[in-house]
Design a protein around this nucleic acid. Structure first.
Length: 562
RNA sequence: CGGGGUGUAGCGAAGCUUGGUUAUCGCGCCUGCUUUGGGAGCAGGAGACCCUCAGUUCGAAUCUGAGCACCCCGACCA
């Protein structure tokens, strides 16, 4: 491509509405353009990168026996009712209607469609395994789109699905895809981790998230340097801690007036004690039923853990009215003592606690000297709180680290949830009918592009890894009015292009400054500068990732690229 | 949806407190000449319904009200 003819609208200033590096750079380098919140066009340069990532995905998946197909984006309501997910997906999906007022959603994911599709041809165990994938635009009515293409309403996703006759087969496919994802993200040049994750609305038994480590990431990643344990912050576990909450002198149950002291900070100040001797009582609505959840004052509740422990689909903090009704007190004064009307679930951090301070279940009051065993009827103790930095690893006892990450891929063992409800059944060797055992595998392709930038940039702009760079080489002609420079540039351009390289020839009538700046900004890995040294037959070869360059004969350029 | 913030030319900003000629600056863009190794110089030029609607006023970018859009923090997720 000749730059003089290319559509690469670069920006000198950082657009005001971009916050994180990848978003700023994608806009500045002319990779994307915003239409509205969460909606972006991929410009030619951005699309080149997207295609490179897609092709890496295709190569690695095809090589492992997965086959590409393309399914409709528009999906009728009925199929989602059949799987029982219409209610769950209702908030997530963009909905639309046809002229006959038939309801459709714009596909947020394709478990229903692919399972229905396979069900129509699946007869025997001899048809299995089946492993299908597609690369397509997905739609999700995000509550808050942000960070450019990182969390968009419309994004490119690779979604894949496997069907097996046995658990062993399903495990094998899961491992195969896990392996493929390792290969894919490695080739994309990402620093990533495969971590234990929650299955969310997908359902299923096991899931691993592929997370690119980056400060701008939205996910917390807990890792152990000692044994390699890694998990999403929302479900990471740790070694149970020693109790240190018995700091109150008295264990005599006493109700104390505490006007206006609602927050942990206010209450600890009032009682002149530490947050560890407080018990927070949170009223949740778990699948619409109120439940009291108890955690120590210094701990944070993980809603994901709560949901998993209670085997619920929906947990939300209760409304003020519900709290008032259930506890008899306004928000901030709930406590476990005498709270018998609803189930109490407690975090392990408070098991056996005595001399604790809790809400009084009455306006402006707290209990002091609470002995959980003696004073409360707690149904179960579970691990419900969120790991914090330097908690100890449950496997090896080393201090845990917390980092930020971007979820770029996710693999699930789905089981038979969809094959049962949508009738993907087969006859086994004994002639018995069984549902196929499924797995599903997603990669956020457009998000992966953003994640790569998030890990590969400097003050000058993007620094693409070779495998995903929109162009591998940029030939910068310092002065196109100099005939020998121009001719040498065009000749080299042809030579490298013929050799199979993606080459950008900067033949614009600009001064060298803007050309160098632009080349750096769009991050082309190798720059060949044709300038004054061409008179001696030499050109400069410079890597984007390095500050030094070498002067070499122009005839050696191709050779030095390999 | 709750909390915080922003909206002035393609991009980035000033002006608004205290209303008053033709709305200012930098970058970018167009023409000409010069220049050509890290965002050139000179000269000339184009480009703005000051987010929208309503109100106050002789007069509104500026004051008031309503609305819209966008960004950030939280619940959702590739």
């Amino acid at each position: 491509m000749k730059w003089s003819q290319a559509y690469i609208p670069t920006l000198r200033d950082v657009p005001q509405d971009a916050e994180i590096p990848s978003h700023q750079l994608m806009l500045r380098a002319g990779l994307i353009q915003k239409l509205a919140s969460g909606l972006y066009s991929f410009l030619p340069l951005g699309l080149r990168v997207l295609h490179k990532v897609e092709n890496i995905i295709r190569e690695e998946l095809n090589q492992r026996g997965a086959q590409e197909l393309l399914m409709p984006i528009l999906q009728p309501r009925q199929i989602w009712e059949k799987s029982g997910r219409w209610d769950v997906v209702g908030d997530l999906a963009m909905k639309t209607q046809s002229r006959e007022e038939k309801e459709f959603i714009l596909g947020p994911t394709h478990e229903e469609i692919v399972t229905d599709l396979v069900s129509k041809s699946l007869k025997s165990y001899k048809n299995l395994p089946i492993n299908l994938y597609q690369i397509q635009v997905k739609f999700r009515d995000e509550i808050r789109p942000r960070f450019g293409v990182m969390r968009a309403k419309e994004f490119v996703m690779k979604d894949g699905y496997s069907f097996d006759a046995s658990e062993e087969g399903a495990d094998k496919n899961f491992d195969l895809m896990h392996d493929a994802y390792n290969a894919i993200f490695t080739r994309c040049g990402l620093n990533y981790k495969s971590i234990e994750a929650d299955t969310g609305v997908m359902g299923g038994s096991k899931s691993q998230e592929f997370t690119a480590l980056a400060d701008a990431g939205e996910d917390g990643v807990v890792e152990c340097d000692g044994c390699g344990y890694a998990a999403n912050l929302e479900l990471a576990i740790r070694k149970p801690q020693e109790l240190n909450g018995n700091s109150s002198d008295s264990t005599e149950l006493k109700k104390v007036p505490t006007p206006g002291k609602k927050k942990v900070k206010d209450v600890t100040a009032f009682f002149k004690t530490e947050a560890t001797s407080l018990i927070k009582t949170l009223i949740y609505e778990v699948d619409t039923k109120p439940v009291a959840v108890l955690v120590r004052g210094d701990q944070e509740l993980s809603e994901v853990k709560l949901r998993r422990v209670l085997d619920a689909t929906d947990v939300v903090l209760a409304s003020e009215e519900t709290i008032q009704k259930v506890t008899g007190a306004p928000v901030g004064f709930a406590g476990p003592v005498g709270l018998d009307s609803i189930p109490l679930v407690a975090d392990l951090s408070i098991q056996g606690m005595t001399g604790a301070i809790t809400g009084g279940n009455a306006p402006d009051s707290h209990y002091q000297g609470v002995d959980l065993e003696r004073d409360c009827k707690i149904k179960q103790y579970e691990d419900l709180s969120t790991v914090v930095e330097n908690d100890l690893c449950v496997h090896c006892g080393k201090a845990l680290k917390i980092r930020r990450g971007i979820e770029v891929g996710h693999v699930f063992k789905l089981g038979t949830k969809y094959s049962k409800s949508l009738g993907a059944l087969f006859l086994d060797e004994k002639g018995k009918e069984n549902p196929a055992i499924m797995g599903c595998y997603g990669i956020g392709v457009s998000r992966t592009v953003a994640a790569i930038i998030e890990q590969n940039f400097d003050e000058g702009g993007i620094v693409w890894p070779m495998a995903v760079a929109p162009f591998q080489v940029v030939i910068t002609i310092v002065n196109i009015k100099n005939k020998s420079q121009l001719q040498a540039g065009e000749k080299l351009y042809k030579e490298l292009t013929d050799a199979g390289y993606d080459v950008l020839l900067d033949d614009r009538n600009e001064r060298p400054g803007p050309k160098f700046k632009d080349a750096d900004l769009i991050g082309i890995p190798v720059r060949v500068t044709i300038g004054k040294h061409i008179e001696e037959g030499n050109v400069e070869l410079k890597k984007r990732s390095e500050s030094d360059f070498s002067l070499i004969p122009i005839k050696d350029v191709l050779k030095s690229l390999v």
